[in-house]
Design a protein around this nucleic acid. Structure first.
Lengths: 349, 349
DNA sequence: CTGTGTTAGTATAACGTTATACTAAATCGT
DNA sequence: ACGATTTAGTATAACGTTATACTAACACAG
């Protein structure tokens, strides 16, 4: 009742294991239809499923893409993972998922584990500034596609990457707020250790300076979290809002590093008896499904997640099958500001 | 630059592959410390990582737990998956995740694929009423732990299961609304094809009848979805709210099958110019992180997700390692009503 | 100096699959 | 009727690991 092997199938179908293997791998053109049918029947009758470990050992690779995200408990990465899986399936690959909490050690550990399973391609859902922890694996032949990680100064290895222009993301958000008359704008984020967060902070500052507003370092709030990407996002946003909005000169608008933080800012403002957007405008980033549903509907910067995930998988599969000849590098997409009801004209001047 | 095998390590350390294997598997008691050290050094020097496929082929099993959920894009399953992974890691297992959209064919397909990888235990995050599609795999020796699936009438196979008492879940919600004076209570759900949804509907009806209120079938709204568990949840909740609340005799309160649906109900009510809870009370199920953060904070029935996932993994690991001697069956936990601000006394009598 | 025991390993045979190179039988052109 | 070609498969040797059973070398008691 335990394991049915290719040899069992061969015996029942009265052929050699080779023939069964040929059928399994679609090399059945030069085979009598009757034989093919016998083999098919034997497979069904015995309920045979190939041992993938053996197959993989023999062929040297697994039709699996690794996916490492900070935490699938964050709805953004939930939908991200879902779309990656869809695209992978469409290309004949399965997805093996790991949560890293943005911890380089866990990333490396996972990557090595995946490598051991014959996985030769990994997609990273969040990209630390440093990736020296992956260099040795890349040198061995691991293919990597990162989300949001254009080449950085000092990189010794170049990798494929896809994402929106994150400087542009916050530039859009900031300009929108400036146009509404806001001058004191807060910026709330978790630990700024990833390239996209760095870029978003930069875009925020750049847009202010271009408008002749000197950025106030007091208004940039960087949370410290032990467990990133999780429920923590909402809590951090809330905490940041408490801190920023109870200052003597509080900001009149807040840009949150992503929508979950923005929801936290909503809660934090409410805790202080402030209304969004009358007392404080809020902008998020990502445009997750709930952004449109919360009250007030959230003004946010949309990421074309379906395009990003599709391109990421296609690029990775192209590398794995050596059909992609593009040089390694970053593909950039455009973010889009979605104005809803969480931002309003600044009244307190 | 490609593959380093155990033989390479053995050569460098001037021992046999067997000895290296012994070290890898912790059987190094009877080995000279100097030899052990040589082997360790060779491993580090060559950057050797064992080929898990080969190991698995040899040992016959993989230290992997399969996890099949409807869709990790649903925040509830996101956090569910995260907690399962944590518990699995603590027990020395990795998690391989698949999204099934509650489609039996995809469930079976995934389960077979996992079986092929040597996975001998799978956790199901959602449990269809029928599970004949898994019987043959269970007969082969697959261990299954289901979330929310006590044995049903007509089951030919008994499986392990863990979850809250779902009849109780909606009973709590309904009693709460009845106590607030509501008599016309709506029930909004997606396709009722899982045991927990069936149970929740039953609890709802039972509580009404116990209170002497005849359930009105018109107030039970069952959505049809092509892509479950996804963004669809919010949309369905919204659509259900539109339908129910624009009736000539609309309900004064609505129970949503889960929190995402409840958020959709918020949006649907707002679309019609109605306020929660003044015009309509709303209760959800799950108590996801956002339930506390949305406006108004959602009254919902809490599921002890961390306990559930921990118990599920422990039970599965117990089966896999044959250390668990409990008979197969259902472990039941208690749901808890969390009253927040989305429910209020019924004014329209 | 024999026999027993211990130490520190090693040889061997799988695990289930697949790609390559082979072959036996049938068909075909002339 | 003969060699050449095609058809329909098959034998074989890995892939990298591990568990079992083995052994060589040495120590030591009597």
């Amino acid at each position: 009742m335990d394991k049915v092997t290719i040899a069992d199938v061969a015996r029942v179908a009265r052929v050699s294991p080779s023939s069964v293997s040929n059928v399994l791998n679609g090399r059945s053109e030069r085979m009598k239809p009757s034989t093919l049918e016998r083999i098919q029947q034997a497979i069904d009758q015995l309920g045979y499923t190939p041992n993938l470990a053996a197959r993989q050992l023999k062929t040297g690779h697994a039709p699996i893409i690794g996916l490492i995200v900070p935490s699938v408990a964050n709805p953004f990465y939930g939908i991200f993972a879902r779309r990656i899986e869809e695209a992978a399936l469409a290309n004949g690959y399965q997805v093996l998922l790991g949560n890293s909490d943005r911890n380089p050690d866990r990333e490396r550990q996972y990557a090595e584990e995946l490598w051991g399973y014959g996985v030769r391609g990994i997609i990273f859902g969040s990209s630390l500034v440093q990736f020296t922890h992956l260099e040795s694996l890349i040198a061995k032949g691991l293919h990597v596609v990162a989300f949001d990680r254009p080449t950085q100064q000092g990189d010794r290895v170049i990798i494929d990457s896809i994402g929106v222009d994150n400087v542009q993301v916050t530039r859009l958000a900031t300009k929108h707020l400036l146009a509404l008359g806001h001058r004191r704008i807060g910026f709330i984020s978790g630990p700024i250790r990833t390239v996209n967060r760095l870029d978003r902070l930069e875009g925020f500052r750049a847009a202010l300076q271009e408008a002749g507003v000197e950025p106030d370092p007091q208004l940039v709030w960087e949370g410290v979290a032990s467990n990133f990407g999780d429920a923590a996002a909402v809590d951090l946003g809330r905490q940041g809002a408490h801190d920023l909005l109870s200052k003597t000169h509080p900001p009149t608008a807040i840009i949150a590093i992503n929508d979950m933080y923005a929801f936290g800012v909503y809660a934090g403002a409410r805790d202080l008896g402030l209304n969004v957007p009358e007392d404080v405008s809020v902008v998020g980033v990502d445009d997750i499904v709930l952004a449109e549903v919360v009250q007030p509907p959230l003004t946010t910067v949309h990421q074309p997640i379906t395009d990003i995930t599709r391109l990421a998988v296609e690029r990775l599969v192209g590398r794995l099958q050596e059909t992609c000849t593009e040089p390694l590098g970053h593909q950039v997409l455009s973010p889009k500001l979605i104005v809803r009801a969480s931002t309003a004209r600044c009244l307190q001047n």
